[in-house]
Computed example of a mutant assay.
Amino acid sequence: MKYQMDRKIRLACLAACTILLAATLFMLLKSLAWPGVVEQTVPQFSYNQNARVDYRVYFKSNKLYPESSLGPGSMYVTNFVDYINTSFKYTFSADRVAEVKGEYEIVAVVEAVAGKDSKKVWQREFVLLPKKAFNGKEQTITIQEELPLRLPDYNAFASTVIRDSELIPDEVSMTVRWNVAVEAAADGGQVKEQLAPTLVVPLVRKAFEIGGEPVKEKPGAITAVKTVPVRVSWKKVAPYGTVACISALVLVLLLWLTGGRAGHIDPLEARVRQIVKKHGFRMAAIDGDISALIGNAVPARSVDDLALIADELNKPLVYRPLSETNEVPSFYVFDEPKVFVYEMKRDNDVT
């Protein structure tokens, strides 16, 4: 058994469900088939540089140190130090074979500073190892270099400058720098890089500790911007699917379980509408009680007959519509002293 609904309401519900279903299905298919794209930075050629300086401090014959040398992280008595042996290792590694070329050098800078702001008073540079070239077509290139630093020689140099200048600085130090410049070319492009690990050795002191940046690492890449499809977001798709299922279910229920019926219209009112549509051009509607105006009433058989009388007498067809005081519509043609009248009946089907 189908539940009967007003035809217009049923059609409106069916139309709303259909439109909602079509819209959500469109958005669902769009979200699945075209989730969108984003721009991402993608590495074309990735590489890494690693430079490391290890050292050991070697001693003269003395009665303090039982060992002949000590590694990093200690304090060293200056008068017992013979030299500092340094071991340098540099590695350039890439994600593919590349044409690599470059050069490196070792430079020591002795400088003195003084004052509250530690301003440089004097400086002297020593080239410990002139520039050396390296090259290769490999995925990984490694260079190694050992170099002893004669600490007494640099302490003697600093002491001589201080004595001759008669200027006593607050601090004198030697910074040893391993300068590396490298170029690499691959399918992704070409790169130029520099790297410089350092050791800082205090001079003209009774004891010292070695500082600086002995280890340096520097990754890099040649990148390109590419358009990448976005993965389907099920959190965005799920609401469209839910609404589409609900809309389809409601639509099926409306089609299977409901039927349309015309809205209820009073038969008498429907008949009045037909009369007004047919004779409206010659009709005039009035309100209120007109019983006082009706004297010698002459009944007419139909509205059509009353319309013929109105045409013959060249009078308007007066219409008194339904109201709280007037249970049935009435039609009049006034021709004093006569009044031609037609009153509709609820069971009257004759025009």
Rank of each mutant, 00 (worst) to 15 (best):
K60Q: 09
W234I: 13
L149I: 15
L147H: 10
V127A: 09
V37W: 06
T198A: 13
V97H: 03
T160V: 08
S118M: 05
D82V: 01
I309T: 04
Y240C: 11
N62V: 02
D54E: 14
V100Q: 01
N50L: 03
I168R: 11
E171G: 02
R124G: 00
V121I: 01
I246N: 01
G259P: 08
G220F: 08
I9L: 15
V110H: 02
E99D: 13
Y65S: 05
F331G: 00
Y76D: 00
G241D: 14
K30S: 05
Q194Y: 06
L167S: 08
L308C: 04
V225F: 14
G220Q: 08
A184E: 06
V107T: 14
L25V: 09
E145H: 10
Q274D: 12
V272S: 03
V230N: 14
M1P: 02
L11Q: 09
V110M: 11
A270I: 02
T160N: 09
I246V: 12
P169G: 07
H279F: 10
G288Q: 01
T78M: 03
E343I: 15
T18I: 15
D54L: 02
E343Y: 01
Y104C: 05
K218T: 03
G241P: 10
R320Y: 04
V113D: 02
F45A: 11
Y3E: 12
M5P: 00
V110D: 05
D187S: 11
F80N: 13
V77D: 04
Y3R: 06
F45M: 13
I222N: 09
E111Y: 09
N135K: 13
F157N: 00
I19W: 10
Y3Q: 09
V176N: 06
K278T: 15
